[in-house]
Protein backbone atom coordinates (compact mmCIF):
# COMPACT_ATOMS: atom_id res chain seq x y z
CA UNK A 1 0.00 0.00 0.00
CA UNK A 2 1.44 3.31 -1.00
CA UNK A 3 1.91 6.44 1.02
CA UNK A 4 -1.13 8.44 0.04
CA UNK A 5 -3.40 5.47 0.34
CA UNK A 6 -2.18 4.60 3.76
CA UNK A 7 -2.99 8.12 4.86
CA UNK A 8 -6.33 8.48 3.21
CA UNK A 9 -7.81 5.03 2.94
CA UNK A 10 -10.36 3.92 5.45
CA UNK A 11 -10.91 0.56 7.00
CA UNK A 12 -13.67 -1.22 5.12
CA UNK A 13 -16.84 -1.63 7.09
CA UNK A 14 -17.87 -5.01 8.39
CA UNK A 15 -21.11 -5.70 6.53
CA UNK A 16 -19.23 -5.41 3.28
CA UNK A 17 -16.90 -8.17 4.36
CA UNK A 18 -19.76 -10.40 5.24
CA UNK A 19 -21.55 -9.90 1.96
CA UNK A 20 -18.49 -10.39 -0.16
CA UNK A 21 -18.32 -13.98 0.94
CA UNK A 22 -21.97 -14.76 0.44
CA UNK A 23 -21.67 -13.53 -3.14
CA UNK A 24 -19.34 -16.38 -3.92
CA UNK A 25 -21.82 -18.87 -2.65
CA UNK A 26 -24.78 -17.26 -4.35
CA UNK A 27 -26.10 -18.38 -7.70
CA UNK A 28 -24.90 -15.16 -9.23
CA UNK A 29 -21.58 -16.80 -9.86
CA UNK A 30 -23.24 -18.77 -12.64
CA UNK A 31 -23.32 -15.66 -14.74
CA UNK A 32 -19.58 -15.38 -14.86
CA UNK A 33 -18.02 -16.51 -18.05
CA UNK A 34 -14.46 -16.63 -16.84
CA UNK A 35 -13.20 -18.08 -13.62
CA UNK A 36 -9.63 -16.90 -13.87
CA UNK A 37 -9.98 -14.00 -11.48
CA UNK A 38 -10.86 -15.32 -8.12
CA UNK A 39 -7.71 -17.23 -7.35
CA UNK A 40 -6.16 -16.91 -3.94
CA UNK A 41 -7.54 -13.77 -2.36
CA UNK A 42 -4.93 -11.81 -0.45
CA UNK A 43 -1.96 -12.25 -2.77
CA UNK A 44 -1.67 -8.49 -2.82
CA UNK A 45 2.05 -8.19 -2.44
CA UNK A 46 3.44 -8.98 -5.83
CA UNK A 47 2.45 -6.65 -8.66
CA UNK A 48 -0.84 -7.94 -10.08
CA UNK A 49 -0.94 -9.28 -13.58
CA UNK A 50 -2.31 -7.20 -16.40
CA UNK A 51 -6.03 -7.67 -16.88
CA UNK A 52 -6.76 -5.32 -19.72
CA UNK A 53 -4.65 -3.26 -22.03
CA UNK A 54 -5.33 -0.77 -24.77
CA UNK A 55 -3.05 -0.33 -27.75
CA UNK A 56 -3.20 2.87 -29.80
CA UNK A 57 -6.86 3.17 -28.95
CA UNK A 58 -8.54 6.03 -30.79
CA UNK A 59 -12.20 6.98 -30.91
CA UNK A 60 -13.62 9.40 -33.44
CA UNK A 61 -17.14 10.81 -33.57
CA UNK A 62 -17.51 11.50 -37.27
CA UNK A 63 -14.72 13.97 -37.85
CA UNK A 64 -14.41 14.97 -34.16
CA UNK A 65 -11.70 13.27 -32.20
CA UNK A 66 -12.67 11.77 -28.85
CA UNK A 67 -9.40 10.16 -27.76
CA UNK A 68 -6.21 9.55 -29.70
CA UNK A 69 -3.72 6.68 -29.56
CA UNK A 70 -4.12 5.75 -25.94
CA UNK A 71 -2.00 2.83 -24.78
CA UNK A 72 -2.51 1.84 -21.17
CA UNK A 73 -2.23 -1.25 -18.99
CA UNK A 74 -5.04 -2.01 -16.56
CA UNK A 75 -3.88 -4.24 -13.74
CA UNK A 76 -5.89 -7.00 -12.17
CA UNK A 77 -7.63 -6.10 -8.91
CA UNK A 78 -6.36 -2.58 -8.95
CA UNK A 79 -8.08 0.74 -9.37
CA UNK A 80 -7.18 2.90 -12.33
CA UNK A 81 -8.34 6.51 -12.07
CA UNK A 82 -8.91 8.60 -15.20
CA UNK A 83 -8.59 12.30 -14.56
CA UNK A 84 -8.55 15.39 -16.74
CA UNK A 85 -10.55 18.48 -17.57
CA UNK A 86 -14.09 18.26 -18.92
CA UNK A 87 -14.24 17.08 -22.52
CA UNK A 88 -10.77 15.53 -22.52
CA UNK A 89 -12.11 12.10 -23.45
CA UNK A 90 -12.37 10.21 -20.17
CA UNK A 91 -15.90 8.97 -20.82
CA UNK A 92 -15.02 8.24 -24.42
CA UNK A 93 -12.07 6.09 -23.36
CA UNK A 94 -14.07 4.30 -20.69
CA UNK A 95 -16.89 3.45 -23.09
CA UNK A 96 -14.39 1.93 -25.52
CA UNK A 97 -13.43 -0.60 -22.84
CA UNK A 98 -16.75 -2.48 -22.97
CA UNK A 99 -17.71 -1.74 -26.57
CA UNK A 100 -20.36 0.75 -25.59
CA UNK A 101 -19.50 2.77 -28.70
CA UNK A 102 -21.03 0.00 -30.84
CA UNK A 103 -24.32 1.77 -30.25
CA UNK A 104 -23.21 5.34 -30.82
CA UNK A 105 -23.99 6.54 -34.31
CA UNK A 106 -20.90 7.75 -36.11
CA UNK A 107 -18.46 6.58 -33.43
CA UNK A 108 -15.43 4.79 -34.82
CA UNK A 109 -12.98 2.86 -32.65
CA UNK A 110 -9.50 1.93 -33.87
CA UNK A 111 -6.63 0.20 -32.12
CA UNK A 112 -7.22 -2.64 -29.72
CA UNK A 113 -8.59 -3.35 -26.27
CA UNK A 114 -7.19 -6.54 -24.81
CA UNK A 115 -8.98 -8.48 -22.11
CA UNK A 116 -6.98 -11.46 -20.86
CA UNK A 117 -4.90 -11.32 -24.01
CA UNK A 118 -7.84 -11.23 -26.46
CA UNK A 119 -8.91 -8.18 -28.42
CA UNK A 120 -12.53 -7.50 -27.50
CA UNK A 121 -13.01 -5.84 -30.89
CA UNK A 122 -12.19 -9.05 -32.77
CA UNK A 123 -14.99 -10.06 -35.08
CA UNK A 124 -15.61 -13.41 -33.36
CA UNK A 125 -16.11 -11.79 -29.94
CA UNK A 126 -19.69 -11.38 -28.77
CA UNK A 127 -20.04 -7.90 -27.26
CA UNK A 128 -22.89 -9.08 -25.02
CA UNK A 129 -20.57 -11.46 -23.21
CA UNK A 130 -17.88 -8.79 -22.98
CA UNK A 131 -20.34 -6.41 -21.36
CA UNK A 132 -21.44 -9.01 -18.88
CA UNK A 133 -17.83 -9.40 -17.79
CA UNK A 134 -17.08 -5.68 -17.91
CA UNK A 135 -19.79 -3.78 -16.07
CA UNK A 136 -20.39 -0.05 -16.24
CA UNK A 137 -21.85 2.69 -14.10
CA UNK A 138 -22.77 5.78 -16.06
CA UNK A 139 -22.23 9.43 -15.36
CA UNK A 140 -25.99 10.01 -15.13
CA UNK A 141 -28.21 7.63 -13.14
CA UNK A 142 -30.35 5.49 -15.44
CA UNK A 143 -32.92 3.39 -13.59
CA UNK A 144 -35.17 1.35 -15.89
CA UNK A 145 -38.27 3.55 -15.71
CA UNK A 146 -40.98 0.91 -15.45
CA UNK A 147 -39.22 -1.40 -13.02
CA UNK A 148 -39.33 -1.56 -9.26
CA UNK A 149 -36.21 -1.05 -7.20
CA UNK A 150 -35.93 -4.81 -6.80
CA UNK A 151 -36.36 -5.52 -10.50
CA UNK A 152 -33.87 -2.83 -11.39
CA UNK A 153 -31.20 -4.44 -9.26
CA UNK A 154 -31.75 -7.99 -10.51
CA UNK A 155 -32.54 -7.03 -14.11
CA UNK A 156 -29.23 -8.41 -15.38
CA UNK A 157 -30.04 -11.81 -13.90
CA UNK A 158 -33.80 -12.00 -14.26
CA UNK A 159 -33.86 -10.93 -17.88
CA UNK A 160 -31.39 -13.64 -18.88
CA UNK A 161 -33.56 -16.30 -17.31
CA UNK A 162 -32.45 -16.61 -13.68
CA UNK A 163 -35.78 -16.77 -11.90
CA UNK A 164 -35.08 -18.50 -8.61
CA UNK A 165 -36.58 -16.16 -6.06
CA UNK A 166 -34.13 -16.95 -3.26
CA UNK A 167 -31.13 -16.39 -5.54
CA UNK A 168 -32.52 -13.08 -6.75
CA UNK A 169 -33.42 -11.99 -3.21
CA UNK A 170 -29.93 -12.73 -2.02
CA UNK A 171 -28.25 -10.95 -4.91
CA UNK A 172 -30.56 -7.96 -4.54
CA UNK A 173 -29.77 -7.54 -0.87
CA UNK A 174 -26.05 -8.04 -1.35
CA UNK A 175 -25.83 -5.56 -4.23
CA UNK A 176 -27.94 -2.93 -2.46
CA UNK A 177 -25.80 -3.25 0.66
CA UNK A 178 -22.62 -2.91 -1.36
CA UNK A 179 -23.99 0.19 -3.02
CA UNK A 180 -24.90 1.65 0.40
CA UNK A 181 -28.56 1.83 -0.49
CA UNK A 182 -30.09 -1.13 1.29
CA UNK A 183 -31.12 0.58 4.53
CA UNK A 184 -32.88 3.38 2.71
CA UNK A 185 -34.95 1.17 0.42
CA UNK A 186 -35.35 -2.16 2.19
CA UNK A 187 -38.97 -1.39 3.09
CA UNK A 188 -40.00 -0.35 -0.39
CA UNK A 189 -38.24 -2.67 -2.78
CA UNK A 190 -41.39 -2.80 -4.88
CA UNK A 191 -41.77 0.91 -5.47
CA UNK A 192 -40.55 2.20 -8.83
CA UNK A 193 -36.84 2.83 -9.25
CA UNK A 194 -37.62 6.23 -10.68
CA UNK A 195 -39.21 7.27 -7.36
CA UNK A 196 -35.77 7.52 -5.76
CA UNK A 197 -33.77 10.72 -5.42
CA UNK A 198 -30.97 11.43 -7.89
CA UNK A 199 -28.26 10.22 -5.53
CA UNK A 200 -30.24 7.11 -4.63
CA UNK A 201 -30.79 6.40 -8.31
CA UNK A 202 -27.05 6.59 -8.84
CA UNK A 203 -26.48 4.05 -6.09
CA UNK A 204 -29.25 1.93 -7.60
CA UNK A 205 -27.33 1.96 -10.88
CA UNK A 206 -24.23 0.86 -9.00
CA UNK A 207 -26.15 -1.97 -7.32
CA UNK A 208 -27.54 -3.06 -10.66
CA UNK A 209 -24.05 -3.22 -12.13
CA UNK A 210 -22.75 -5.17 -9.13
CA UNK A 211 -25.58 -7.67 -9.21
CA UNK A 212 -24.19 -9.44 -12.28
CA UNK A 213 -20.76 -9.88 -10.66
CA UNK A 214 -18.61 -8.27 -13.32
CA UNK A 215 -14.89 -8.99 -13.43
CA UNK A 216 -14.08 -5.44 -14.43
CA UNK A 217 -16.08 -2.43 -13.32
CA UNK A 218 -16.05 0.83 -15.25
CA UNK A 219 -17.33 3.75 -13.20
CA UNK A 220 -17.94 7.13 -14.77
CA UNK A 221 -17.99 9.72 -12.00
CA UNK A 222 -20.05 7.42 -9.78
CA UNK A 223 -20.12 9.86 -6.87
CA UNK A 224 -20.69 13.13 -8.69
CA UNK A 225 -24.33 13.30 -7.58
CA UNK A 226 -23.83 11.86 -4.09
CA UNK A 227 -23.63 13.50 -0.69
CA UNK A 228 -20.34 13.15 1.26
CA UNK A 229 -21.59 10.24 3.34
CA UNK A 230 -22.71 8.17 0.36
CA UNK A 231 -19.51 9.13 -1.40
CA UNK A 232 -17.56 7.69 1.50
CA UNK A 233 -19.49 4.49 1.35
CA UNK A 234 -18.95 4.14 -2.39
CA UNK A 235 -15.24 4.67 -1.85
CA UNK A 236 -15.34 1.98 0.83
CA UNK A 237 -17.07 -0.22 -1.68
CA UNK A 238 -14.31 0.38 -4.21
CA UNK A 239 -11.70 -0.65 -1.67
CA UNK A 240 -13.67 -3.74 -0.84
CA UNK A 241 -14.49 -4.61 -4.42
CA UNK A 242 -10.86 -4.34 -5.44
CA UNK A 243 -10.16 -7.68 -3.81
CA UNK A 244 -12.05 -9.38 -6.61
CA UNK A 245 -12.72 -6.85 -9.31
CA UNK A 246 -10.61 -4.66 -11.54
CA UNK A 247 -11.87 -1.08 -11.47
CA UNK A 248 -11.51 1.88 -13.79
CA UNK A 249 -12.98 5.05 -12.35
CA UNK A 250 -13.41 8.51 -13.87
CA UNK A 251 -13.37 11.30 -11.36
CA UNK A 252 -13.12 15.07 -11.22
CA UNK A 253 -12.19 14.90 -7.57
CA UNK A 254 -8.42 14.79 -7.11
CA UNK A 255 -8.69 13.71 -3.50
CA UNK A 256 -10.93 10.86 -4.53
CA UNK A 257 -8.49 9.75 -7.20
CA UNK A 258 -5.72 9.84 -4.61
CA UNK A 259 -7.81 7.97 -2.07
CA UNK A 260 -9.13 5.14 -4.17
CA UNK A 261 -6.75 4.44 -7.01
CA UNK A 262 -3.51 2.54 -7.46
CA UNK A 263 -2.75 3.97 -10.88
CA UNK A 264 -3.81 7.25 -12.42
CA UNK A 265 -4.01 8.37 -16.03
CA UNK A 266 -4.23 12.05 -16.91
CA UNK A 267 -5.99 12.95 -20.15
CA UNK A 268 -5.92 16.26 -21.91
CA UNK A 269 -7.85 17.11 -25.11
CA UNK A 270 -8.03 13.50 -26.22
CA UNK A 271 -4.42 12.60 -25.44
CA UNK A 272 -3.06 10.53 -22.62
CA UNK A 273 -0.54 12.89 -21.08
CA UNK A 274 0.74 10.90 -18.16
CA UNK A 275 0.20 7.53 -16.56
CA UNK A 276 1.72 6.09 -13.43
CA UNK A 277 1.27 4.93 -9.86
CA UNK A 278 -1.13 7.30 -8.18
CA UNK A 279 1.17 8.48 -5.42
CA UNK A 280 4.03 9.35 -7.75
CA UNK A 281 1.73 11.02 -10.27
CA UNK A 282 0.27 13.21 -7.55
CA UNK A 283 3.50 13.91 -5.66
CA UNK A 284 5.97 14.29 -8.49
CA UNK A 285 4.22 14.55 -11.86
CA UNK A 286 6.56 14.36 -14.81
CA UNK A 287 4.51 16.57 -17.09
CA UNK A 288 3.93 20.27 -16.62
CA UNK A 289 0.24 20.00 -17.63
CA UNK A 290 -0.38 17.23 -15.12
CA UNK A 291 1.08 19.34 -12.38
CA UNK A 292 -0.98 22.36 -13.41
CA UNK A 293 -4.13 20.29 -13.44
CA UNK A 294 -3.71 18.51 -10.13
CA UNK A 295 -2.71 21.70 -8.38
CA UNK A 296 -5.84 23.35 -9.73
CA UNK A 297 -4.25 25.85 -12.07
CA UNK A 298 -6.71 25.01 -14.83
CA UNK A 299 -9.63 22.74 -15.63
Amino acid sequence: MNLIQSITSKVPTLPLFATSESRQASGAAEVKTSTGTNTAPGTGKAENKMRMETHDLSVHYGSTMGVRNVSLPIYDKQVLALIGPSGCGKTTYLRALNRMHDLTRGARVTGSVMLDGKNIYDSEINPVIIRRRIGMVFQKPTPFPTMSIYDNVVAGLKLVGIRKRNVLDEVCERALKQAALFDEVKDRLNSPGSSLSGGQQQRLSIARALAVDPEVMLMDEPTSSLDPQSTNRIEDLIHELKKQVTIVIVTHNMQQAARVSDKTAFFYVGDLIEYGPTNSLFTKPKEKRTEEYITGQFG
Binding site: V128, A209, V212
Partner: peptide, 8 residues
Protein backbone atom coordinates in the same frame (compact mmCIF):
# COMPACT_ATOMS: atom_id res chain seq x y z
CA UNK B 1 -27.02 1.65 -22.85
CA UNK B 2 -27.81 0.83 -19.24
CA UNK B 3 -29.41 -2.40 -20.41
CA UNK B 4 -26.47 -3.35 -22.57
CA UNK B 5 -24.03 -2.52 -19.78
CA UNK B 6 -25.46 -5.27 -17.59
CA UNK B 7 -24.94 -7.76 -20.37
CA UNK B 8 -28.38 -7.92 -21.97
Amino acid sequence: EAGLAIGL
